[in-house]
């Protein structure tokens, strides 16, 4: 038996919007720790990891570990039927091939349940060891989204370089080139508007903008984003979900050959 009640249902709607472009089908794993998902995109270039900790739910019952295969487009269709202030409850019985999403309006005058068929998904789970990164950049998520969008109108790839001067995003295409430098800026009114660079050593890596743009679908989940870079590792783009967990995206770099 599984029953997860999330008062801030809009959060789940945003989570689906954040991952459905990158991944078509995925297994949602439910355990005492929380509600999680790990999935690669179809070309095995990027990976998304989601965690919603059990403590973040108003009610969290998960009698035994359960993995539920879902088509994310279909989940998104269901969740779009929930109002933005609705309380969302996810329910499943042991051994059942369906999951139920229940939506309650804030004043309890409307209750809807949507039952969705589960599917068998052969998904590969990758081990991601903790790593020390050469540079970690924290910046406003809206700013990062803007940069990725702007640069993708010029080129297909971005070089992200971190030095003690700041973080530089560069691209080149048929019509020209573009460079955007963000300097460390801690002296802002609100901490979420700051750009903070923790650098052990300079690092420069090349990534496909298409994937980074897809990651920025998580922007509504968090005011800030952290970008962790090391020369021999995929970049980690993390959006923290307040009090609950995170959506992390991992993207393998491009190399010169």
């Amino acid at each position: 038996m599984l029953e997860l009640r999330l008062v801030q249902g809009s959060l789940l709607k945003k989570v689906l919007e954040a991952i459905k472009e990158l991944v078509t089908d995925a297994n949602f794993d439910c355990s005492a720790t929380g509600f999680s998902l790990q999935a690669m995109d179809s070309s095995h270039v990027a990976l998304v990891a989601l965690l919603l900790r059990s403590e973040g739910f108003e009610h969290y019952r998960c009698d035994r570990n359960l993995s539920m295969g879902m088509n994310l487009g279909n989940v998104s269709k269901m969740l779009r039927c929930a109002g933005s202030d609705d309380i969302i409850t996810i329910k499943a019985d042991d051994g059942s091939d369906t999951v139920t999403f229940m939506f309650e309006s804030p004043n309890q005058d409307k209750i809807a349940d949507f039952e969705m068929k589960l599917m068998d998904i052969d998904s590969e789970h990758l081990g991601i060891p903790d790593a020390e990164y050469q540079a970690i950049v924290r910046m406003p998520s809206g700013e990062f989204a803007r940069i990725c969008k702007d640069l993708s109108s010029i080129g297909d790839t971005v070089i992200i370089s971190v030095t003690k001067e700041g973080v530089k995003f560069s691209t080149a295409g048929d019509i020209g080139t573009a460079n955007i430098v963000c300097r460390q800026n801690k002296t802002v009114d609100k901490p979420e508007e700051a750009t903070v660079i923790e650098m052990q050593e300079p690092v420069s890596l090349t990534f496909a903008l298409r994937y980074l743009n897809s990651f920025t679908k998580a922007t509504p989940l968090s005011e800030t984003v952290s970008i962790s870079l090391s020369s021999d590792l995929p970049v980690v783009v993390e959006y923290k979900i307040a009090d609950m967990g995170y959506v992390r995206y991992y993207l393998a770099p491009k190399i010169e050959e």
Binding site: M40, H44, V45, E124, L126, G127, T206, K254, E257
Partner: peptide, 14 residues
């Protein structure tokens, strides 16, 4: 030429 690496080059199945 640029080559796109796979995520599976870095992380392995558990």
């Amino acid at each position: 030429t640029e080559v796109q690496l796979s995520i599976k080059r870095f992380y392995h199945s558990t």
